[in-house]
Each structure stands twice: as C-alpha cells, then as structure tokens.
Write a protein that binds this DNA or RNA. Structure first.
Length: 640
RNA sequence: GCGCCGGUAGCUCAAUGGAUAGAGCACCAGACUUCGGAUCUGGCGGUUCGGGGUUCGAGUCCCUGCCGGCGCGCCA
C-alpha cells in the first residue's frame, strides 16, 4: 500500500517538474523524521535549486500549487527549506492494513538455496553457531514471505580434521570400541566437547600422535576401515544432537548435505575436469606448491596484494582442498555439475540427507537460481575464491548470484569469560572479549544457555503468581526462552561482533524477545476483557474507514503508520540481508504500543467512537506484530 | 604488508545522504482506587576517533591518519 503511494507521488512530482521547468527529474520520496513534517516527503525542490539557481523554498511553493491530490492524501504542505510534505488519510491507511496482508508476496518464483548452521559434527553447538542458525532461519522465512522458493541446506563436514580428532580421542586416547561409543550416555555432544579439547592437548604432548589424525583422515576420505565406521557413528549421533538443539528454537532444514557424499559421488572429479578444460587451474612444477593444482588469483583485482597469489585446489597427494570441494558443491547447487547426490530420509522425519550410493526415491534438490551461504565473516576470503572459481569456469551469472551472507562472530564478554572460568580476575580486560574456540573448549554450549533461559522464564512466570504448572508452565517457559534467544541474535547488526554477556542475554526487559511477546499479550488481554464486559472486541475495515478523521490522534497514528511501513522494511531486509531491520521494526511497534497502552485506556473509555479508534489501533498493531514474529520465528503465547 | 569489519551517551547499540543524532541497560525521581508493573513518564548523560574533501545538506560518501577485531595455509 505505502509502496504504491510512494510510486504515485514520485510520478506526480516528476510530471509537475516537467510541466513547470521542462526538466527530467527523478523524484525521491522519503519518510520524514518527525510527524509534524508529514507522512511522506519530497525533497526535490532542494535538488532543483542549484540547477534553476533559485530559492528552493520558492520552487517548492511553485510545485505544490496545483499539485494533483490523490484521494488517499489529506494535505500537502511546503515546509522547511522547501520540502514538499504529504499527509495521508489516516483512517484509510488503518483500514487498508486490516483488509489485506502486510506482506505482498509478489509473483517471483526464483528458487534460492540457503545454507546455514554447518556445524562440524564433533562437539556440542555453541552460541556462535546459534547466531548462524538464527540468521539463516530468519533469512529463509523472510525470503519465503517475499515469494521466493527456498531450500534450506545444512552442510555436514563428516570427513574433516575436526571429526578425525574426536575419532582419535575415542580410539587412541580412550581406547573405546565402536560398541562402547554407541553405548555412551547422552548428551553425547557434551562428552565430545570435552574429549575434543583433550585431544588437542594430547597432540601437543607428542607430535608423533598427529600420525593418528593422518591415518584417520585417510580412512574417512576413502570411507573404509574401523575409523571411518566410527566416524559415521560419531557424526550421526552428534548431528542428531545438533538437530535437537536447533529444534528447540524452531529451526529445521530441508536437506543435510554430507561431505562424504560429495566425495563418494566424485563431485570434485567432475569439477576438476571442467576447471582443467577451462584452464582455470594449472599444475605447479616447482616452487613451494610443486605437485599441486593451483588457481592463480593474481589477475583478479579483488585479490591484489596477496602474498601468495595462487590458491591450492588439489594437494600434491592428489586430494582436493576445502575450496576445491566447495567449488564442486556450489556448482551442484546451481545445477552446473551434471551429477547428483543419492538421497535418503533422515531417521524417518521429513528431513532428507545426501548419501554416496543411489539412495531412494526423493523430491528434487539443488539447481537454484540464487545461492546464499550463511557463513561467518572470517571465511570471506574462501567464499570469494569459490565465486571466482565459478567465474573462471565461465559461469558469470551464477558467480554473481553466489552470495556470502557474512556475519561477525560471537565472542565472550570479559564478564562471561570470568564467570565461566576462562579468565581469572587477574587477567586484564580484553577489548572485545574472548574468542570462542572449540579446540580449546572455550565457549558457551547452546543447550546450556537455552536451559538457563528456560529456568529464567519459569522463574519470571511464577513470580507473576500465575496458577500455571506442569506441562503448560514448561511449554510457556520454552516459548518465552525461544523468543528471548532468537530476538537477541536477530536484533544485532550482522557486521558487528557480539560480545556475549549473560546479563544481557537473560534480561527480559527493554529490548528483548519477551518485551515483544508481552505487547501482543496485552492487546489480547484487552480484547478478552472487552468480550467479558459484553463490548465489541472486533472491528471491520469498513467501520475503521468510517471513523471521523479527527479521532486519529497523532500518537495513535504513529503506531498505525509504523505498521504500514512493515512491508517496506521486510523487503529492505531481504534485499540488503540486514535482518536486524525486521527485529528493530518489531521493537519499534512494541514500544509504541506500550506507550499508548498507558495513555489510551479502552475499557474505561465511555465514548464509543473513541473506543473504536483505539480498538482499531490495537488490531492494526497485532497485524503488524504477528507478521513480524512469524518472520523472526518468535512464538506468540496468549498469556504470559 | 595487503584485505574485510568496527570506532556514536558510563555500558551495549540505532540512525534508506535530509530537517532538533535516538533506544535499551545502569543510576536518580515518579505512575490515577490500573485493559497485568516482563510496562510507562521524567531526569542524568554527545566535539558521532582526529584531519582534509565532495554536496544545497555528511554520523553516513571520498582521501588520509590513529585505535580495536578478523582474515590472507597442500586446516576447514
């Protein structure tokens, strides 16, 4: 709705400029910073001032005189230096919000693959992984709401060093058999968390032990022997735990892509043929990369200044590097490889996984128009190499549509690091906190944090003397904790490092998930009480449109207008990949609602029309807030 | 050395190139015989890291310097 208004105003303005000055002009339509400056603003006169060598205010007045007035406009004024400020018909906008969905999906049917989570299957998920998964999940929801077809993939590196190290831990450090490993109690991922960091220390004691790692990697790569078998077992159990952790937050996937399947289906062999044919890679005969196949990067401007301008794609022992495999995988995602995975269901749920053999009957996967990889910013360099790889193969459009959704990492605040014993009181404050490290066992496990959030939620519910107990209490506590965590991760700008702090994450006041939920619960309470009093809790768009214009006081309108901007905000979030826009907009709505709540009581209002306009505002708010909660994946309990 | 990201209130952070730079936390003072106080109102708090430039207009764009984080492997 608002988008249409803006487009129409722009074209009317351009027409006026053409009539008056015979100039081609591209009109900008802005939302003014303050309410008294109108609802939409055109700063065109300021831009024209120079060209026409005239006072901008004068130009503004001239354009405003005889400016055509669409019926959704209530007033047009020239203000400030010459801004053309447009005031909307408030009731009409409110009624519009109640009569149509806030997000119009459009008719694009582009298929987008979103890859996220991607946790190494060798230890418990930590809070850094939660940032990735929440961003990926919200992104998928936003893209779907914009009408795209989205396939969510979670990449499992089940042949890499990290998994190998835990296998070494089980076999060579602990001396456990496969049966004993299978019999270990849950939480298995917690057990591995400790084992993994122990293996790191064990290697340091004696370099020769790294031989176990090499042997394990070899067996994993060829999928043969006891170590590979244990690798499957460990990866299976860990992935299961990761999926459970993510399910606690309402995060799910369409497909688990196993690196073992990429190897087993010889994806890289196929990619390698193409890379060689197109001369994107060359074999190095001498120097430090002798015997390797490398991709020369020197000629690309974006790699200017690299110490070593060549990226190794195939090692001297003939195996593919991570980047090599990733290029092959990326080609498959676009349907450029001419080869496919086998697929099988993951433990009989609706989730599929790739397998090396031919698998079972399955729905189609891959072959997307656009690929978005949610991977932290530390991997920007490698993601860039993957994209260049596609370019060198001649797939320019696909390279362009290979998007690295880069977000900054999560570190531990100094306070959190001290609480967990990773820093002592004597350690100096480290700027930006302490970096998490799975290898060193430094971090906050996702499930531990979620448990704390559930405890805190339960405590808060009980403090409000609700007669709630048993499963209902637990369900609500889980919903509130989910909202707290998801909102905490979603509100952060992606380009900023999060210094994780317990006090901040566990705070349910102010800018928090529970604050959002509470605002919706409040309007629900109003409606319920109205019904109890025998008053009307519903209102139709026609009734809203018929309300006298002067009833739409400024503060009510502020909220209505904010809701009207929801569609534009969500579109901007999807286009710029700055998902915090969605979270911040939700926060804005909640703050406005809560302010009104105290100022404009509904139940005690005796004037029927006054009550109706306030009631209409609550419905407009709920429409906006529910939409945003869905996008953010926040549950919306009726009471809390 | 080169590249990417940050530097805004005591702290954590907002601000599609636009009008008087805003929130939350913390601190202080308040909120009607209240639709639930997980709330609200007010107060305190700013040389937007420094220096140039572009622009009618710069926290925002360009150049430069400084500070912090992260990358730049035959690891992933």
């Amino acid at each position: 709705m608002l988008g249409d208004f803006r487009r129409e105003l722009a074209s009317l303005f351009e027409q006026r400029v053409r009539e008056l000055y015979d100039l081609g002009h591209i009109a900008i339509v802005e939302i003014p910073p303050r309410r008294d400056l109108g609802d939409l603003a055109l700063p065109g006169a300021l831009q024209l001032a120079r060209e026409l060598k005239r006072n901008p205010r004068e130009i503004g007045e001239e354009i405003a005189a005889d400016f055509p007035r669409p019926d959704w406009v209530s007033e047009i004024k020239v203000q400030g230096a010459g801004f053309l400020n447009v005031y909307l018909d408030r009731g009409r906008v409110a009624a519009g919000i109640l009569s149509a969905p806030l997000l119009d999906a459009g008719d694009r049917d582009e298929k987008i693959i979103v890859e996220h989570t991607n946790i190494n299957p060798n230890k418990a998920a930590h809070i850094g992984h939660l940032r990735n998964a929440v961003l990926g999940d919200v992104l998928a929801r936003v893209l779907r709401s914009l009408g795209h077809q989205v396939e969510v993939q979670n990449y499992i590196d089940d042949t890499g060093v990290q998994l190998a190290d835990v296998i070494v831990g089980f076999l060579d450090l602990r001396g456990l058999s496969a049966a004993e490993i299978a019999a270990l109690d849950e939480p298995f991922d917690f057990y591995c968390w400790d084992l993994y960091s122990e293996v790191g220390r064990w290697y340091e004691e004696d370099d020769a032990r790294l031989g176990y790692r090499r042997q394990t990697l070899r067996e994993l790569e060829h999928d043969e022997g006891e170590r590979a078998e244990i690798g499957h077992l460990v990866a299976q159990r860990i992935v299961k735990r990761h999926l459970e952790t993510m399910a606690r937050l309402g995060i799910s996937y369409d497909l688990l892509t196993h690196e073992s399947a990429i190897l087993g289906r010889e994806f890289f062999t196929r990619a390698f043929e193409q890379l060689r044919e197109r001369q994107a890679i060359r074999r190095e005969e001498q120097g430090k990369n002798a015997g390797c196949w490398v991709m020369p990067l020197a000629e690309s401007e974006e790699f200017a200044g690299l110490e070593d301008p060549d990226k190794v794609i195939v090692r001297s022992d003939g195996t593919a590097t991570y980047v090599g495999k990733d290029i092959a995988y990326q080609m498959w995602k676009f349907g450029l490889l001419g080869r496919d995975f086998g697929y099988r269901l993951w433990e009989e749920t609706g989730l599929w996984q790739t397998v090396a053999d031919d698998g079972a009957e399955h729905p189609p996967f891959g072959t997307a128009d656009r690929v978005i990889n949610v991977i932290d910013a530390r991997q920007s360099y490698l993601q860039k190499v993957v994209r260049v790889g596609l370019e060198r193969l001649g797939f320019d459009t696909q390279a362009e549509r290979s998007i690295h959704f880069a977000y900054e990492m999560v570190s531990l605040s100094t306070a959190a690091a001290r609480q967990l014993g990773f820093l002592t009181e004597d350690d100096d404050d480290e700027a930006g906190g302490l970096e998490m490290s799975g290898r060193k066992g430094i971090g906050v496990k996702a499930d531990d944090l979620l448990d704390q959030l559930v405890d805190k939620s339960r405590e808060e519910i009980l403090a409000r003397n609700r007669e709630l107990a048993g499963p209902q209490l637990e369900e609500l506590a889980v919903e509130i904790s989910t909202a707290a965590l998801r909102f905490f991760m979603a509100k952060a700008t992606t380009t900023r490092v999060i210094a994780f702090d317990f006090d901040e994450a566990l705070n349910f006041e102010g800018e928090s998930g529970p604050y959002l939920l509470y605002s919706l619960v409040r309007v629900g309470n109003i409606w319920r009480r109205l019904a109890e009093e025998g008053l009307e809790a519903e209102i139709t768009p026609d009734q809203v449109a018929a309300l006298p214009a002067e009833l739409w006081q400024d503060d009510l309108w502020d909220l209505v207008y904010a809701v009207a901007q929801t569609g534009g905000r969500v579109r901007a979030a999807g286009e710029t990949l700055e998902l915090s826009l969605v979270a911040r907009h939700a926060l804005d709505l909640a703050q406005k609602l809560n302010a009104l709540y105290h100022k404009h009581p509904i139940l005690q209002e005796s004037d029927e029309q006054m009550r109706a306009v306030r009631l209409a505002t609550t419905h407009v708010f709920a429409a906006g807030m529910r939409t945003l909660c869905d996008l953010l994946g926040l549950p919306t309990p009726e009471r809390m």
